[in-house]
Each structure stands twice: as structure tokens, then as C-alpha cells.
């Protein structure tokens, strides 16, 4: 495991890939590797790209990565697509839009299924970002699943969050709703060659007039590569602002806090499901709840008491 970690630090792509798989499968042996990986991480700029399905996130990310490569920066991409709640299978198709990056040795792309996580990311995305970061990638782009209004976990991992919209998604009321519209550090109006792009931009601007947060709005047409230069300027400005104001450190602390709690919760869940003594008592409690003998809250007290014993 140590050897695998050392190889990943040197940029060995097979080692990086294998470590990410261990993270995805929840392997306990990963800990040994992360002891070596973690101290070397923290240098990369982590950019989250989110938005409804079909707005062009993957295509935009491909264009961003191509520009970063022109600037001589290496790029890691973690692209998340949904896992089926019925079969556990997934069709991971973000790479279809990223073919121009497929044979560049300085770009590493990993597709992930959500595997039961609901916030738009996969549980392993934190480890994947750390591993890519420690392996020397300058820029790491995290692509969420196509989100709805409330899947906002991306802000827990990204330094800079880009929310991608397209013309025609809704009127002004949609822009002042909570959730997705609140988390943007930068808005992108993609497919801006389509009718209605101007009014989308105007609605975003009026939204910001009545809020306290001014967020840059960039128009892009990702299939043509238009507006991507401006986007990267805004992304860089944002990163500089994070560093200058100490906000970067605050966001990184938030990331690690989330990750820490997630790991603990994951372990607890595993204990409850996998360890014989809990499985039996949980089964019994569920029977009593179903029969109306016990309410779920009281049953939870009993489970917690058992865990803490």
C-alpha cells in the first residue's frame, strides 16, 4: 500500500487509478496510503462545476482543460454520474464530451458513480481529489451529476464553484430560490448562442441587485470554445481573492470537516449493517417499529446506546 502511494505521488497513472478504486470500494487499507498522500496534497485549485443535466458541463470542462493545458498546467478531472438506485449499475458517459483530452498524459480523468450518495457527488470524491492533488495536478475539476435545485454538496469540496445555466430554464423567481442559485462563485450561461441568453443574464443580474453577493456572470458557447478564456480569468480572480482574504483556508477546513464526518458516519453505517450484533438488534427494532410497538426515534436511541457502549 505504501508503495502504491509512493508511485501515485510520482504521477504513476495506474497507481492513481488503483488508489481511487480503493477509495470507491471503501477499502480500509486505503488509510495507510492516505497517511502518505495527505501531507502532499493542498496545492491544487479545486474547481467544482455543477448544473442541471444537459447544460453542457462536460463539454465546458473539456474546453477549460484544453485552455489550462495551453497554459502549461496539468489537470485532473473527476466526473460523477448517477448510480441506479435499483441495480447499483451506472452509465458513466461524461468522457464522450472529453475525447480531445484522452491522449494527453498531463490530464487524468476519472468517472464515478454516485453509489448511493444524494448530494450530487460520490463519497469517494474527497479521496480522489486528494490523490490527484498529491500526484501533482495543478487544477482539479469536479463535475457533479446533473443536479436539481438542492444538490449542493459540491461546495464542500470545491474552492471555486461554477454553476452552469442555459437560456430558458425559468424566470426571475427561479433565480431567487434557495439552493443551487446560492452556491455559485461564478455563473456561466452556456449555449449563449441560443435565443434568450440575454434575458437569462439580465435575470441573474437583477437577482444579484437584491442580494448582497455579487457574482460574475460569463456567457459561453462550449461547443465553439467561446467565452472560455473569460471564464478562466474569473476562476483565477476568484482563487486569488480566496487566498488574499483567508477564505481559502476556511473553505479547506470546511472540506476536511465534511470529509471527517463522512468517514465517521460511513463507519457507523457499516457497523450497523455489517456487524452481527447490530444487524440482529436492528432487525428486531425494525420489526417492533413496523408492528407499532416502538417509534423510530426511541429505536434510534437504543441503537446509539448500543454503539456507544
Amino acid at each position: 500500500m505504501r508503495e502504491l502511494a509512493e508511485r501515485a505521488l510520482r504521477g504513476d497513472r495506474r497507481a492513481i487509478a488503483r488508489l481511487i478504486s480503493l477509495a470507491e470500494s471503501g477499502s480500509e487499507s486505503l488509510k495507510e496510503a492516505m497517511e502518505i498522500i495527505h501531507p502532499r496534497a493542498g496545492r491544487a485549485h479545486v474547481i467544482g462545476v455543477t448544473g442541471v443535466m444537459g447544460v453542457g458541463k462536460s463539454t465546458l470542462i473539456c474546453e477549460m482543460a484544453l485552455k489550462y493545458r495551453e497554459m502549461g498546467k496539468s489537470v485532473g478531472i473527476v466526473a460523477v454520474d448517477p448510480t441506479s438506485p435499483f441495480t447499483g449499475g451506472a452509465l458513466l458517459g461524461d468522457r464522450v464530451r472529453m475525447n480531445p483530452l484522452a491522449s494527453d498524459g498531463e490530464v487524468f480523468i476519472r468517472s464515478m458513480g454516485t453509489r448511493g450518495k444524494l448530494g450530487g457527488l460520490s463519497g469517494a470524491v474527497y479521496d480522489a481529489v486528494e490523490i490527484l492533488d498529491a500526484s501533482g495536478k495543478d487544477i482539479i475539476i469536479v463535475e457533479t451529476v446533473g443536479v436539481g435545485q438542492a444538490e449542493v454538496d459540491v461546495i464542500r469540496i470545491a474552492d471555486t464553484t461554477v454553476v452552469v445555466l442555459v437560456p430558458g430554464l425559468g424566470d426571475f423567481i427561479q433565480t431567487i430560490k434557495a439552493g443551487l442559485m446560492e452556491i455559485a462563485d461564478i455563473f456561466v450561461v452556456n449555449k449563449s448562442d441560443r435565443p434568450g441568453a440575454d434575458s437569462t443574464v439580465n435575470e441573474l443580474k437583477s437577482m444579484m441587485e437584491i442580494s448582497e453577493k455579487m457574482v460574475p456572470v460569463v456567457c459561453t458557447s462550449a461547443t465553439e470554445g467561446e467565452g472560455v478564456d473569460e471564464l478562466l480569468v474569473e476562476v483565477e480572480n476568484h482563487f486569488q481573492m480566496l487566498k488574499d482574504t483567508g477564505e481559502l483556508e476556511r473553505r479547506r477546513r470546511r472540506r476536511y470537516e465534511t470529509e471527517l464526518v463522512e468517514i465517521v458516519m460511513g463507519r457507523l453505517k457499516k457497523m450497523i449493517y455489517d456487524e452481527g450484533r447490530f444487524r440482529e438488534s436492528v432487525g428486531e427494532l425494525v420489526r417492533r417499529i413496523t408492528d407499532g410497538e416502538l417509534d423510530p426515534h426511541s429505536a434510534a436511541e437504543e441503537v446509539l446506546a448500543g454503539l456507544l457502549r
Partner: peptide
């Protein structure tokens, strides 16, 4: 996918 596997699909012309 329906058999529970993770399928990475990359499109044409590889």
C-alpha cells in the same frame, strides 16, 4: 448497467 456494473462509455472514433 442493468446488471449492476459501472459502464464507462466513451463514444465513437477511439
Amino acid at each position: 448497467r442493468d446488471a449492476g456494473m459501472e459502464v464507462i462509455y466513451t463514444g465513437l472514433h477511439q
